[in-house]
Design a protein around this nucleic acid. Structure first.
Lengths: 247, 247
DNA sequence: CGAAGTATTGACCCATTTCAAAGCATGTGG
DNA sequence: CCACATGCTTTGAAATGGGTCAATACTTCG
């Protein structure tokens, strides 16, 4: 089941069994990608969309000097470039962190799906809206939090998202990222991430070493991150639920 | 024509005349709002969506101490909370900057529209995706630019968006915002915005006084903002265009 | 074993914040 | 039409968080 984690923990229940099958059968190809591989560049025309099946990916923008600013990190079950379907171009680059397995959906096939399954369309729309909600939270993170809060916030978010799909438990999860990757996601330097992580380790808040994260004190971490996971759920749309069966 | 500026300069052409009329007739009420008025709070259930007809609005998140982080600024023609339609709740507050005129769309009516006009639905989806693209650029702004770059970037973006709808020309436009509002959008302090604006004024880059902005040197402003307006257009979706006529 | 990438730490520097005070508009009521 | 309140802007001085530069250690892997 390639699509088994799509919206899992959010509105997965709103998808009928039929719709799940339709989605599963719409996959046009499956690929394995190596770590640190840029699979798509800003501005290129695209004609497929990518569901991340296993592994971690990220989207980023480059600044003038070629330094990256991550604008999102993706976990299994995320449709990483579904917006490329209506938009036909990406406004950012798309790359893997660790090795990944992805399922590709041809836009022609998606277009047919969209004609025949309006409810499924709305679920896809919904998933891009969750994405936007996460963007907003990142803006907040960069705008109002200091370095420690930003790092704390990122780990809180990843923990919450990975928990929903069964890839984190008791605050432990794998994350194939370097300290520089964290830095690029938080808008600070790699050197400073190192210092922040040391402090958090000393205070027994959070451990992160060689791709393994462990949250040691969720309460204090959330406090310093001002983290509230509500935005990750899209609040269980009543509208979607009410329309759920007729798709 | 209340909806006349919706997607103007982006994919307005993709809307058929019928669709424009349908949209126009779907307006359930029109309201005038005073300046600095919070019309909606995070978490509240919503059953209408808001098209901004005249004036400026913003969305923001509060931090622990009640300070705001703006996550977007809106200009006439923007659907400021269309995501509330599938989501049924907002993850942020929504407020006016200056006095505003808005058109409300009842979600029940939108639901009917969505059943009957799949192409219009996709255009609405598209407009929420533009929103997300702007979010990404804001993340970049906060993550990679210093104070001057951030302010420059914000003014470049507003100029570009206002130009599309005919509310800016030759780099001049009205913006009913205080220096503190700018600060809340850029993740810096009001005091520092003041200093940045003074420097920009001295260098004859940008003037902003009592709600009136004037870009004096677009080239240099763009350079310091690392601004490229491509993200504002969603690159004229071929898919939307190809489906444009069949409503 | 050597190479390349990654992590760690120290010292110094600078952009931005913080705190504080004063100046300027704008509007309201007397 | 003045007096005062309120909110916005401006400026200075001191404090600080995070950046930069540079050197050293650790890991992983061919």
């Amino acid at each position: 089941m390639l699509t088994g984690r799509f919206l899992l923990g959010r509105s997965r229940e709103a998808l009928s069994e039929d719709e799940c099958l339709v989605l599963e059968n719409a996959v046009s190809s499956v690929q394995e990608l190596p770590a640190r591989y840029t699979m798509m560049r800003r501005g290129e025309p695209v004609n497929t969309s990518t569901l991340l099946v296993e592994g971690f990916m990220c989207r980023y923008l480059d600044d003038r000097d070629g330094y990256r600013q991550l604008v999102s990190m993706h976990v299994p079950g995320d449709f990483v470039d579904l917006h490329g379907f209506p938009m036909k171009r990406l406004d950012h680059d798309l790359a893997t962190l660790g090795p990944c397995k992805i399922a590709l959906f041809d836009h022609k096939v998606l277009a047919e799906l969209v004609e025949r399954y309006p409810h499924l369309t709305r679920m896809m729309w919904f998933s891009t809206l969750l994405d936007a909600a996460i963007h907003r939270e990142w803006i907040f993170r960069m705008g109002r939090l200091g370095a420690e809060g930003r790092v704390a916030h990122l780990f809180c978010e990843l923990n919450a998202r990975l928990s929903m799909i069964g890839l984190a438990k008791d605050g432990r999860f794998s994350l194939p990222a370097t300290q520089s990757d964290i830095a690029e996601a938080c808008g600070i330097t790699g050197v400073h991430v190192n210092r922040v992580l040391r402090i958090m380790r000393e205070r027994d808040l959070l451990l992160f070493r060689s791709g393994e994260a462990q949250i040691r004190d969720m309460g204090r971490l959330r406090t310093m991150a001002e983290f509230d996971p509500a935005y990750l759920y899209g609040s269980r749309s009543e509208w979607l639920d009410s329309q759920g069966e007729q798709g």
